[in-house]
Computed example of a mutant assay.
Amino acid sequence: MKEADMEKDNAEQPIFSTRAHVFQIDPVTKKNWIPASKHAATVSYFYDATRNVYRIISVGGNKAIINSTITPNMTFTKTSQKFGQWADSRANTVYGLGFASEQNLSQFAEKFQEVREAARLARERSQDKTELTNPALNITAQVVPCPIISANGPGDDKFFRSQSAEMELSTERERVKKMLSEGSVCEVQWEAEFFSLQDNNNKLVAALREANANVEKWKKQLAGYQEEAERLRQRVAELESKSQSTVPSTEQDGDLTERLQNLETLLKSKEEEILHLKGQRPDLTELESERDDLLQKLQEVEDQNQKLEKELEKAKQSLKETHMERDRIKEEINRAGEELDAKICQLSELRSGLSQLLDSN
C-alpha cells in the first residue's frame, strides 16, 4: 500500500529534450508533410512513473502538436541526414522531425531506441506482475468483507472513520499530483515561447543588418557615380576653355569637336544612369525610418524576453516550492499512514479482547 502511494506521488517528468521542426503527414494524401508549427519547437521524452509509460510531447503555442505514447512496436526511421519519422497508430498519423544537424537526429534516434526497449521491458514486467498478483487479489476479495459483516460494536465506528481518513488522504494525493503535472506543462510552454521569441529576435537583427548593408552599398555606389560625373564635367569645361583660348586648325577643330561630342554623349549616358540609379535607390529617409522601427521592435522583443525570463524564474521557483510542499505533504501522509497502521493494530487488539471477553461471558 505504501509503495503504491509513493508511485502515485511521482509526477510525469522530462528525461530528454531537443529542438526540431515538427511535421505531420497529410491525412488526405498520406504523402505530403504539413508543418505543425512555424518555428522549431522543443520536443521532449516524458516518463510517467504512475502508469509506467513513455511519451513524446511537444507544445506549440497553447496546444500540444505531439502527444505520442511509445510502444514496443514503434520504429523511428531516418529518411535523410537531418530528418526522421515514426508512425503512431493510436493517433492515426505519422510524425516527422527536421533537425538542425545530423548529430541531433542521431541523439534523438538513439533515445527513441532506449525508450522503446524500456517500454517493452515495462510491458513484460507488468504482464508478469499481473499474472502473479491475480490469485492474491481473488483471496483478498474473499477475506476482506468478513470483518465488515460480522462487526457489531463500537469498534466499527472507528474502523469506518479510518477508512474516511484514508479516502481524504488519497484525495489530497491526487490534488498534489495534478498540481505538479500542471506545473511541468506550464514550464514546457514557457520554454517553448522563450525559444520562439529568441528566433524572432535573431531574424529581426539579421534583417536590420541587411538593411544597413544595403544602404551603405547604395551610398557608396551613388557617390562613385557623382564623382565620375563631376570629373567629366570638369574635363568638358577644360576642353571648352582650351578651344576658346586657342585658334586650332580645321583638322584639330574637327578632332576636338568629335571628342567633345563623344564626351557629351558619355556624360549624357552617365547622367541617365545616375537618374536610373536614383530611381532604383530606396529613399534613405524611409530606410532610416524602417531601421528605427526595427530597432524599436528589437528593444521591445528584448524587454519581453527579459520579462519572460523573470516569469520563467518565478515559475521555476514556484515549481521548486511545489516540490518542497509535495515532500512535506508526502511526509505527513507517511506519518498519517503509520499512525493509521498503529490505530488499526490497536483496533485489532481491542476487537480480539472484546471477542475473548464475549467468549468468556
Rank of each mutant, 00 (worst) to 15 (best):
V143P: 02
R175V: 07
S181H: 06
N201V: 12
A136R: 00
R175D: 07
A165M: 13
P145Q: 00
Q127S: 08
S196D: 14
R125K: 12
V176M: 15
E191M: 09
E187M: 15
L137I: 01
G153F: 07
A122M: 02
D128E: 14
T140C: 03
V144M: 03
F194L: 12
F195R: 15
P145G: 00
S164T: 11
Q198W: 00
P147M: 00
S162E: 15
L132S: 08
E193K: 14
L197H: 06
E131W: 03
E182G: 00
E172H: 06
S126V: 01
Q127D: 08
L137C: 04
Q127M: 08
Q163Y: 05
L169R: 15
E172M: 09
G155L: 14
A136E: 01
A192W: 04
E168Q: 11
Q127R: 07
N200G: 06
I149V: 14
S184Y: 12
C186G: 01
V188G: 07
E187G: 05
D199H: 14
Q189E: 11
K177I: 06
A151D: 05
S162D: 06
F195S: 09
D128L: 14
R173S: 10
E172L: 10
E187S: 11
S126T: 05
T133S: 08
E168K: 13
F195M: 09
E166G: 05
W190L: 15
T140N: 02
I139M: 06
L197N: 13
V185E: 09
V143E: 07
E166I: 04
A136G: 05
T140S: 06
P135I: 01
S170D: 11
C186V: 05
S164M: 10
M167F: 13
